[in-house]
Design a protein around this nucleic acid. Structure first.
Lengths: 168, 168
DNA sequence: CTTGGAATGTCAACAAGGCTGACGTATTGT
DNA sequence: ACAATACGTCAGCCTTGTTGACATTCCAAG
């Protein structure tokens, strides 16, 4: 990998293979940190990352259906069902039959589910908050821009749809 | 979490729970995109993400030992060994006995291993490059700052140690 | 020279969380 | 009446992580 003059003529140094590689490694290591706190919390509770994800998105979109959750999480119904069954059996999630379409199950967190969600999300947000504070608002904006540009089309659709419901 | 005036006095809006939550979701969706291309490539070759990670870091630090790789990847030797065995058997990785300490195995990519590494890393870098180009250099700097701030201490050590060997 | 401990390999067993395929059931819309 | 949809479930498989136990090899200290 010879490192000659910038190919674009000006400051395209940030597109160097080496820069890209560092970005890749940063994603790898950061993701580990990102998931570590919830993982630790769930470890004692007979649950894992999959449960956390389901809880997160049910909290985020109360009343969401099973198929919608499948699409967001990008897993099969069998995988999702295993997790949902556990969450329902332990009383963290409630599945209400749809009023308009009674084939659908609308998912809600129970009080206990909401409490666990808060515990998990507090831990995860705390790390995120610390990182944001360290890096500052400009960096945060860039962080989100790059991540959004890295998503698949479909993921981006889900991401943006979720965002509408919340604050922005 | 009531949403009154910004507690800091000025623009601390980026530390809102909602902003943090969007960052969390951005990480989730972006990481899916991040791994999708290599996953697709490996899917036909009897290998998975674990093999990719090993190949990546062996390429990055040729001659690294098994224990060092264990520390970087954060997995047990049994997990790593399963992957390494497959890579060695298929002729993608070579394990040379250490000269100074003959208990150690120093890991290198073979020609075939390097070729696969390039294929995987080309795909992954291409997505990263597109995201970088879309977001621009300022955003990229912020992206990396936030990710670095999100890492565990130990991960950050590994991350920086790797970076020394390369460019930057 | 012996021996403790480090580095590595390996076997076995297990768990989480993905997947496919197949099938059943309720419900809806045509 | 019937096809399609939404969901649940059983069975089986794969990858990738885990522990625990044990053997080997070898460096280095006593």
């Amino acid at each position: 990998m010879a490192e000659g003059a910038p190919p674009g003529g000006q400051s395209l140094l940030f597109l160097t293979d080496e820069q890209l590689r560092k970005g890749i490694e940063a994603m790898f290591f950061a993701y580990r940190g990102f998931t570590s706190d919830p993982d630790r919390i769930l470890e004692g509770k007979d649950m894992g990352r999959a449960h956390h994800r389901a809880i997160h998105f049910i909290h985020r979109s109360p009343g969401t259906t099973v198929s919608n959750l499948m699409a967001i999480l990008g897993v099969t119904k069998q995988s999702l069902n295993r997790v949902l069954r556990a969450l329902i059996e332990t009383g963290l999630v409630e599945a209400r039959v749809g009023r308009r379409d009674r084939r659908e199950r609308h998912l809600y967190l129970t009080r206990e589910g909401a409490a666990l969600e808060r515990e998990l999300s507090d831990a995860q947000r705390e790390r995120m908050r610390a990182a944001y504070r360290t890096a500052g608002p400009v960096a945060v904006a860039g962080f989100r821009q790059v991540l959004e540009a890295m998503m698949d089309e479909e993921s981006r659709r889900h991401y943006e749809t979720l965002a509408e419901g919340g604050g922005q």
